[in-house]
Nucleic acid binder design. Structure first.
Length: 559
DNA sequence: AAAGAGAGCGCG
DNA sequence: AAAGCGCGCTCTCTTT
């Protein structure tokens, strides 16, 4: 059973049950207040319906705030983005519709007028078209799984934002004081940082230098006789000069101050929790993005401030070498899957005699997935290609398709966007008679660039799908855990306060915050979920997805 | 005063 | 001369 949800013209909420194909089985209930809506949802959850709404990020927080957790949903906006592009559903009415028809819908927001598309089509029609696109596609099972996983991810994202990542302000502040000195007003350098700035100015003989200005700094370095094209730390490390050491120190600490300093703490941490906004589907490949607080870029430096509550633990798990394993699965490469069986995949490649060192195996694999053409990784690539021809053929085919301007598709059916008009024009122009060699060169370079994108897309995008399935499985299993002394009523009243729950997700890594007594059980469940995710994507094809799952008090311990 | 580009660096 | 993929955030500097 599906239950459609939308805003009414009067600002209330309309709900009405529909069949799986999108046909209404009863008339909408009268317009509900937020409170009544939450009560309705809580009551209907006993029948485990799938809630169908435009945008999980606008609907679900309103339920969570009232203590209501749901099991399943269908996020029309996220599904729309997938179905419009998927090559598997290219013949559907949805995919073939004029983009203008969907402009409003795709924009997404809580706007009640959103689905009044002007000619009688509304949210039910939108849902019906999506169901029809899936059912009539070349791989309904895969697309159905993808949409379910994408929507489950959106639920998990809202829940993680609601629950927040445990964050100890005092621990973070101690770290800042040690690295930077006492807190200074915004715009003033803290003491330890200013001292480093002074050492830099002295070493370069430039008393007025602002080391935060790349332009000034580059000029000062050049004037001091240092030859460098940029002020990037990576470049500076290769130079010999008294200024290098304090400069690198300065850069590291200045970064800490600006990205995760006191201002960050004030803005993002309240009541011992960091509440970032995750954006499911925010990356073309299907990975999540994040808004605010840089949730997906938390430096290792500050992870010690992520501390479990007293009596609780963090279960930190990440998938080992996810992307190359994904490639083995996507390509159906048995030899590569065998190399990764129950072990470090890169070590397995070495053990197979393909290359000599783990580092070689790793950079060759990354080179294959990213499209390296020069450097050390490109040198060992031929050996990889000889040992794992199917895997390498898969990424090569994806690259060639991209170079031709075609789209490529992940395991479950997310397709890459086509290159834009400028790109196409440049390609077309390059093959005309009056094209200059420069035109041809530029076109070729852009074609290769797009080819590197599509090459990586099938791997990164399929890995994102695995991760979504993993996350969804963890979410379900956590909710189904039988807790001692818990009544069904208590469970719904406080969705996460007393139960193990997800608090962080980072592409191939999750953190669960759990009562200490349940930590072992949670770690097992997280591992089982990984196995299940692998089976969902690849059936009986024997590719492993081993995890490192650690039970710790703080996040820094796990890395 | 605000918006945008570029540099740089954090994460996978 | 070109250069392995995908992001977000902050700062400086320029443009509007």
């Amino acid at each position: 059973m599906h239950i459609l949800v939308r805003s009414s013209d009067t600002g209330g909420v309309l709900v009405w049950p529909v069949s799986d194909t999108g046909t209404a089985v009863s008339a909408p209930e009268g317009s509900l207040s937020d409170e009544a809506f939450a009560a309705y949802v809580r009551q209907q959850e006993r029948h485990a319906p799938r809630w169908v709404w435009d945008d999980t990020a606008t609907w679900y927080p309103r339920l969570l705030a009232r203590g209501v957790r749901i099991g399943r949903c269908h996020d029309l906006r996220l599904a729309h983005a997938i179905l419009r592009l998927s090559t598997l559903a290219a013949e559907s009415a949805l995919a073939r519709a004029d983009p203008d028809d969907w402009q409003m819908a795709a924009a997404g927001s809580g706007n009640p007028a959103l689905f009044d598309l002007g000619d009688g089509r509304d949210i039910a029609e939108w849902f019906r078209l999506q169901q029809e696109a899936v059912a009539g596609s070349r791989a309904p099972g895969r697309l159905r799984l993808l949409l379910a996983a994408e929507s489950a991810g959106a639920l998990a994202a809202a829940e993680m934002r609601f629950a927040g990542l445990p964050w100890r302000r005092d621990v973070h502040e101690r770290l800042l004081a040690a690295e930077l000195g006492p807190r200074a007003p915004h715009g003033i350098r803290p003491e330890r940082l200013e001292r480093l700035a002074m050492r830099i100015r002295e070493a370069l003989g430039t008393p007025a230098l602002n080391p935060d200005s790349p332009a000034e700094l580059l000029k000062a370095l050049t004037d001091a006789g240092l030859s460098t094209a940029s002020t990037r730390a990576f470049e500076l490390r290769r130079l010999e000069h008294p200024v290098i050491e304090p400069l690198l120190e300065y850069k590291k600490r200045a970064r800490l101050l600006s990205a995760n300093g006191w201002a960050w703490l004030d803005a993002w941490v309240t009541a011992g929790r960091f509440h970032p906004e995750y954006v499911p589907g925010g990356v073309v490949t299907g990975r999540w993005a994040a808004h605010g607080g840089g949730a997906l870029q938390l430096p290792k430096q500050v992870r010690g401030a992520v501390v479990a509550d007293p009596g609780w633990k963090l279960v930190v798990a990440d998938a080992a070498q996810l992307e190359p394993r994904m490639l083995a699965g996507v390509a159906g490469d048995r030899a590569m899957a065998d190399a990764g069986r129950g072990t470090d995949l890169y070590a397995g490649i070495v053990a197979g005699g393909v290359v000599e060192t783990r580092q070689q195996a790793k950079s060759a694999m990354l080179g294959a997935m990213y499209g390296a053409t020069t450097g050390r990784s490109a040198q060992v690539l031929p050996r990889l290609a000889a040992a794992y021809p199917r895997a390498l053929a898969a990424v090569e085919a994806a690259a060639r398709a991209g170079e031709r301007g075609e789209s490529v598709t992940t395991r479950l059916g997310r397709s890459s966007p086509r290159p834009n008009a400028t790109w196409r024009l440049a390609q077309a122009h390059a093959s005309e008679a009056q094209a200059t060699p420069a035109d041809e060169r530029r076109a070729r370079s852009q074609a290769r660039e797009w080819g590197r994108f599509t090459r990586n897309f099938i791997v990164q995008g399929s890995a994102a799908e695995w991760a979504l399935c993993w996350l969804a499985e963890i979410r379900n299993r956590l909710w189904n855990l039988d807790l001692p002394h818990e009544t069904a009523n208590g469970r719904s009243a406080a969705p996460f306060r007393a139960r193990p729950h997800l608090v962080f997700f980072l592409h191939d890594e999750v953190i669960v915050h759990t009562p200490a007594a349940l930590a072992d059980q949670v770690a097992d469940l997280v591992r089982e979920a990984a196995g299940q995710a692998g089976r969902l994507l690849f059936g009986e094809f024997p590719v492993d997805f081993p995890l490192s799952a650690r039970i710790v008090d703080d996040y820094a311990e796990a890395t």
